[in-house]
Structure formats: C-alpha cells, structure tokens
C-alpha cells in the first residue's frame, strides 16, 4: 500500500465529513419535513456514512476491483430479504 492511502490528511477530512453529516442527520428531524422526505434523507445520510467508512477507513476504495465486487455484491441478497419482508409486512397484520 502506498503512503498516499494512509495519509493522515485524508483521514481527517473523512472524519470531518462523517461528523458533519451525522449532525446534518440529527438536526433535520425537528424541521418537520414530510415523512417520506425525512426518511429518504436519513437513509441517504446513513448510506453516505457507511460508504465513507468502508471506502476510506476500511480501505476498500484502494483495493482491487475484484475484491470490491466480491465483498459488495453478496449484500444484494440480504437487501432482497429485507425488501421481501417489508413487502410482506405491508400486506399482513400481526
């Protein structure tokens, strides 16, 4: 691994970004946005945070493409389970 990837500067930048969007997610709630917009916003923020952690802190961005695919593609399957369960949830009642 080259020194560029381990540079402290990048980490600090990522850290600041993470804090900024965490705060953004936190202060958006009392604004009284419509429910779906608020939820969308929150989920996008979570995905951004997750993406930053995985890409920079876990170095995935700097690994080979084949490794990246082998880690990320399987996650589609668990998302499929979640989607099916949520869909089931809207058509059944407890």
């Amino acid at each position: 691994m080259s020194k560029q990837e381990h540079s402290k500067k990048v980490y600090i930048k990522v850290w600041i970004w993470l804090l900024a969007i965490t705060i953004a997610g936190f202060i958006v709630s009392p604004l009284g946005l419509p429910g779906w917009l608020h939820n969308l916003f929150i989920v996008i923020i979570a995905l951004m945070k997750g993406g930053l952690i995985v890409a920079y802190f876990m170095h995935l961005k700097f690994e080979r493409l084949s490794l990246i695919y082998s880690i990320l593609l399987p996650l589609i399957l668990i998302v499929a389970l979640a989607v099916a369960l949520l869909y089931e949830g809207t058509t059944r009642f407890l």
């Binding site: 399957l77 499929a80 099916a84 869909y87 089931e88 058509t91 059944r92």
Partner: peptide, 18 residues
C-alpha cells in the same frame, strides 16, 4: 437459491404477487 425461499411458503397466506 437465495431468491427462491418463498416456494416453501405458498400455503402460508403469502401475497399472491410475491
């Protein structure tokens, strides 16, 4: 094999579309 699990549950009252 990961996207067929519902075929064990056809009689569970599953939504017909699913």
């Amino acid at each position: 094999s990961f996207i067929v699990w519902g075929h064990h549950m056809f009689v569970s009252g599953m939504n017909p579309f699913l």
